[in-house]
Write a protein that binds this DNA or RNA. Structure first.
Lengths: 334, 334
DNA sequence: CTACGTTCTGCAAACGATTGACAGGAATGT
DNA sequence: ACATTCCTGTCAATCGTTTGCAGAACGTAG
């Protein structure tokens, strides 16, 4: 912290005005005469005065800090979320206090966050217990679950339509004539995995089909590598739906590198998220695009709205996702 | 912020002690009798008391917040840095306030950061003007440039030995018998690029060689794609050194996808950083490993040391980098 | 020149903690 | 029994702001 920092009182002294006058010149919309303002500004500049946000927060009751809790950045989807969220909030005068957490520790982490008197909280790739949600709500601190959904909670939720996304992928694979389709799951109990799988299965069922093989990849590269081997060792399906892109890359590497099969000639692979790597030529993965921009916009909107009124009401925003057709499915051969 | 938050006074009232007693029970190393502490703790628990970090910071003069400034997360090296740095600081009771910046805007951003009374600042993929460095130093706020080096500044610097890394790559390529070697640069004026290129060129020169072609990729995937085409359209070298892994992936995709050449049979490719993707089978890229763990440890150490004494002295830590031999160079064929 | 409505300005009380100074009581020694 | 020491706990000042209140200053109209 500042060793010998300049305070508003110092500025006031130099400018020959009261300390309140200094405060007022730095408070947009306060009444100060042009002359005073000018004198204060000059003095402030001379001394290099910088208002102390902490002191301001203490009295104003708003810190302009948003706590962001994230479990892992391995999946490139999340760094993008961090970047866009942070930029968007910065543009509105808010800043992001970052908390990495082990899954399962979110509740403790939130307690820690609250000590910083954050104005709002965003949880990405993480959920929270309902009693903590309750507590935040009671404090007037809005909480947004990003890309997760928990029913019956005080927290808001911003997601894309994972059910419909799963359905679209199934329909694509069916249309391409696949009938021996495997699924590699992410985290069994995450809402993203549950919903994507549900949509996928529903669409298969509607066509009188069902998944022929299933393995779990835990949303990690390693896990997906193992899951892919598990499936391929048993029997070679003609298509695999992998619950996210990050795992899909591992699966593609196993298919081509270890089993010498071609994509999509021998097996089609589809993923979910549309992270930048999905567009890289080596993978060129057909996937579902999660509309990050829109989801961030929704998140920020919910936060701002609820912070302004210091009144939280659980809101749910679902954005439509879109199919991103690339080269890992048969259609691309036509 | 808290609508009706519980203060130490509330706790004091309930526990029938003075407010100072409450403060003391929450201050490690303060003298309170077991009985009082117990009463306070009980009352605190009952009310759900949570010390207000902002108020504490205001008076104690330390916020336990570290400002982290980063320009972009496209290169997966930086998300890893964020994650590890954040975890390491959290373990020591510090937290990261994140600032995304456009390159060139760091100085304004730092001004903003200082308003939060941060105890320290880390700049990754970014440098700062010397007068801002001076200012931070004057305030007793240590600044660490992560993966960047600027001579003659008040800021500390944590880097790996990029010159030696570049040299190692050149020596490897020479040993493999290459003599028609191209280089794709990152940002022309970044210390990483300058040093890697310097080491590389020195080693080539020592063997009586020099780079045959050179293009600039600006450390972006797109830029590297274009740079690769530029080089390959002109003449096909027998090896390419790409200034970081992120760009190397683009280059490999162009080589294989657009020119139908094999790696490493037709061209060897080497990168720099050893991000996780470099180990993915599709790329399997020979590269130089930046010892992130060590660099983070150094960063945290410097920060803690200087924050404790509120006394900054520019320090430079250079970690040795190691060659990570994989399949994108000829040695792997042996 | 007075009166009155606007701006401005300064005073002082918060905000929620930490911490040094001090006082009361228990514990100890003689 | 009295003095001395050692703990504990309380009081009150302080950190750097914001902001309600009330008075000062100013301009304008009558």
């Amino acid at each position: 912290m500042t060793k010998s920092s300049v305070t508003s009182t110092d500025v006031a002294k130099l400018a020959n005005v009261s300390q309140s006058a200094v405060s007022r010149t730095f408070t947009p919309g306060a009444s100060v005469s042009g002359k005073t303002r000018e004198r204060v500004l000059a003095a402030a500049k001379e001394l290099g005065y910088r208002p102390n946000v902490l002191a301001r927060s203490l009295i104003s009751g708003r810190s302009r800090i948003i706590g962001l809790v994230i479990a892992y950045l391995e999946n490139h989807f999340y760094p993008i979320v961090i970047e866009k969220l942070s930029r968007s909030l910065q543009a509105r005068g808010y800043h992001v206090l970052l908390f990495m957490t082990e899954p399962g520790q979110q509740d403790e982490v939130i307690q820690e966050i609250l000590q910083y008197q954050v104005d709002g909280v965003v949880l990405a790739s993480v959920t929270l217990s309902s009693h903590i949600a309750q507590e935040c709500a009671g404090l007037g601190v809005p909480v947004v679950l990003f890309n997760r959904y928990v029913p019956d909670t005080q927290a808001s939720s911003v997601v894309s339509d994972n059910v419909s996304g799963g359905r679209m992928l199934a329909e694509l694979l069916i249309k391409e004539g696949h009938n021996n389709i495997a699924f590699i799951a992410g985290q069994e109990n995450s809402s993203t995995n549950v919903e994507r799988e549900q949509g996928f299965n529903e669409a298969l069922a509607a066509a009188g089909l069902q998944v022929s093989q299933r393995a779990v990849g835990y949303y990690t590269f390693e896990g997906a590598t193992i899951a892919a081997r598990e499936i391929l060792d048993q029997a070679v399906p003609d298509a695999i739906f992998v619950a996210n892109d990050h795992m899909a890359f591992a699966v593609m590497d196993v298919i081509r590198g270890e089993y010498g099969l071609r994509i999509p000639e021998d097996i089609s692979v589809v993923g979910y998220d549309d992270v930048p790597e999905a567009g890289w030529p080596s993978y060129n993965l057909t996937t579902v695009e999660q509309p990050v921009e829109k989801m961030i916009a929704d998140t920020v909107e919910i936060l701002l709205e609820q912070m302004e009124h210091k009144q939280v009401s659980p809101t749910r925003r679902v954005t439509e996702a879109g199919l991103m057709l690339r080269g890992s499915t048969k259609s691309s051969l036509a």
